[in-house]
Amino acid sequence: MLLGEVDFVESTGVMVVKSVLIFIGVFLIVPVLTVVERKLIGRFQARYGPNRVGPGGVMQPLADVGKLLGKQVFRPENAIAFLYAIAPGLVILSGILTLAIIPFGNVEDGVGLYGIDVSIGVLYFFAFSSFAFYGLLLAGWASGSKYSFLGAMRSAAQLISYEVSMGLALLGVVMMAGSLSMTSIVEAQGSIWYVVPQFVGFLIFMISGFAETNRSPFDLPEADAELVQGFQTEYGGMRFGSFLLAEYLEMFVVSGIAVTFFLGGWMGPGPPWLDPVWVVVKILSLIFVFIWVRATLPRVRYDQLMSLGWKVMLPLATLNVLVTAILVTVL
């Protein structure tokens, strides 16, 4: 039903198996990411970071998850029970659904190494990443708390402001590749990765990506000093853990999209079976940049964030699309 420009049909069994594999693989990466982030930030700040649980602190995520699961499930009196409960689910749903289109490798032996290859490609990403917005907003609204509500409103405004520039940044690549399909875009980068001709697009995409994932320096929704964690204020236990998990998932997905569109996807030296390894290595390097930036840059003010989004990123992205369109037609 959803399959686009593929000239083969996979059996349902194959699709289920690979979905489960990708799902488990990424879910195993996420806890590792949390400990890597804490370790790295520790190093950036000239301290050790977690080093008590297991050798070098590597078992820290297990302890964290154990703690989160063991907490009492708590709900504020003012909260709206139903919405309060489904909000974290929506955020996770958005992360997992968008994960499906990231290609980890080309078609090998009749099996594509990706969840699905949709003909609408990146539109699928925008369609399902918009669900995250409702997760945040419902979390803030249903918590029945001023801090949560303000945090949710901020993140909502931030999400819609940067989504436009993000889409325009990818449009340049779509025009150069002449396709929306993720695998075709990777294949079009055989001679040169799009990060070179589309460097402006890459920069805009990454900066918008920081805003979309609510990561520092754009982590205003959870600005601890003013909003005490924003929309997450009233959440505890594994529901809070779900938001955390979703943040890492989104970071993984945004990096995955950037790798697919700009960094040549599975392209890399070595035999074909190394393809998925290359994708994961590239994604992890981008996630390192996320952590690096978090350790380096201070949080921007809300009005700075908005004027950067609307007055710098959006015109720049539009200009990039215009220039690319002209060049693609002329050359």
Binding site: V118, I120, Y124, F126, A127, S130, W141, A156, L159
Partner: peptide, 28 residues
Amino acid sequence: LLQAEFIAAAQIVVYAGAVMVLYVFVAA
């Protein structure tokens, strides 16, 4: 179901992703 993937995606991106966001803002 009607094989209109693009329309479906546009429906979600434009309405659920953008227009309804404003509605939710105002209503909240």
